[in-house]
Design a binder for these strands. Structure first.
Length: 110
DNA sequence: CCAATGACGGTGG
DNA sequence: GCCACCGCCATTG
């Protein structure tokens, strides 16, 4: 992928506040590439080991954790829990925890 | 060039 | 709620 795409994705992921999550598709859309959810995933898989990027806050569109059954999945689960994100039946209730940039940036009141 | 793959998403039963 | 199928699109064989 273009460097532009990578850069955009990194910025967006880095901007996801603790205690919230964001789907691959949503990140892709915000990056300007609506149909590239898979590539966001690929970028996450290719992240350098010591990356500061909060990749654990990026999950599937249906709230499911992508790395279920793998060591990284456990890490992700642990981190989310640590940030106060609930995980029920291997899924995150997006109703409550999905990041809403518009709400965070434009409409603070609620 | 064609076929298969992947930290995905949406629809339909 | 669950599972199955199809579409997406760059990368790889």
């Amino acid at each position: 992928m273009n460097q532009e795409f990578r850069d955009a994705v990194y910025q967006i992921v880095a901007a996801i506040p603790a205690g919230t999550v964001c789907s691959y598709g949503q990140v892709a859309r915000m990056a300007g590439y609506p149909r590239h959810a898979r590539f966001v995933g690929r970028l996450m898989s290719q992240l350098p080991k010591g990356s500061k990027l909060p990749w654990h806050r990026v999950i599937r569109g249906d709230g499911g954790l992508p790395l279920i059954g793998t060591p990284s999945g456990e890490t992700q689960l642990r981190r989310l829990h640590q940030e106060g994100v609930a995980v029920l039946s291997q899924r995150v209730p997006l109703r409550r925890f999905q990041w809403r940039p518009e709400a965070a940036e434009s409409a603070p009141g609620e």
